[in-house]
Write a protein that binds this DNA or RNA. Sequence first.
DNA 1: TTGGATGCAAAGCTTTTGCACCTTT
DNA 2: AAAGGTGCAAAAGCTTTGCATCCAA
Lengths: 150, 150
Amino acid sequence: MDNKQYEQAMDRLKNNGVRITPQRQIILKYLIENDNHPTVETIFNVLDKTFPNLSMATVYNNLRLFKKLNLIIELPSIDGGYRYDFYDHPHLHATCDNCNKIIDIENPRFTEIEQELKDETREVGFKPTVSSISIHGICKECQVKLAKNK
Amino acid sequence: MDNKQYEQAMDRLKNNGVRITPQRQIILKYLIENDNHPTVETIFNVLDKTFPNLSMATVYNNLRLFKKLNLIIELPSIDGGYRYDFYDHPHLHATCDNCNKIIDIENPRFTEIEQELKDETREVGFKPTVSSISIHGICKECQVKLAKNK
DNA sequence: TTGGATGCAAAGCTTTTGCACCTTT
DNA sequence: AAAGGTGCAAAAGCTTTGCATCCAA
């Protein structure tokens, strides 16, 4: 794990007068170490194994808190729920509308594009924080799957 | 209203074997004529006035259908719900995380940027359809409001 | 020490579904 | 005439909240 990300996240909590609890630590660590864009339930199920008595409410409450502090971003899934992603460097998301998987796409030009989009919002007096940039469509695997079912 | 958008939407329904009902017509018309990014409830409340006995379930069902046909896009709001937007030409959304307002930002370069992002997903075998591109932050009005409350 | 955080359970929403009736094709 | 869609109400899910207890600072 990139420890710097974790330390910076802890600092952001401290600077906002938010207490550092084991629950907050493991949730953030999980999000930093995994780029699987988990649902709330996935996060809960995985962490509950090694941290019994963890409460779903705590996961919900803390995800909401982290989102407000711009530590994570929330990605809508076509299945109705949300997926969560630690907001490290901005990157492109490709969301499969068939299996709901979210794929990270890295590209050196992306930071530049994000900057350009943020600048555009500044022109109308907006104060940008994070970006949520997704391309919807069908992933490679599902294209094959869907073709077979015809 | 741009009638072409409406006609094209109707064609897309027909081509997919979907029946054209008055409910579908008024919901689509409403979304085409308004760029206020309404919630499900707003859509229901406005349309129910002139179309009594409209059912919330019908609004939900049809929004889901339109989304699947890529006629509209669904934008997550920090208040937990979603906002809907007729998917005409791609454009940038600035989402205020304080008042939940969504602002359309038009820029001639945007189509080009969207194309570039879609191309990036194609490189990993993805088949892109629509984009959902939002910059989160605080709008002009809320910046003033929040400064006053200090 | 003490205000904030957690866990549990209950409440509150939002969204979907079942079914009888109605409408488009 | 038949397949599909609608409205209503009930069910199902998801998310938040109240409160007693616990713990980080």
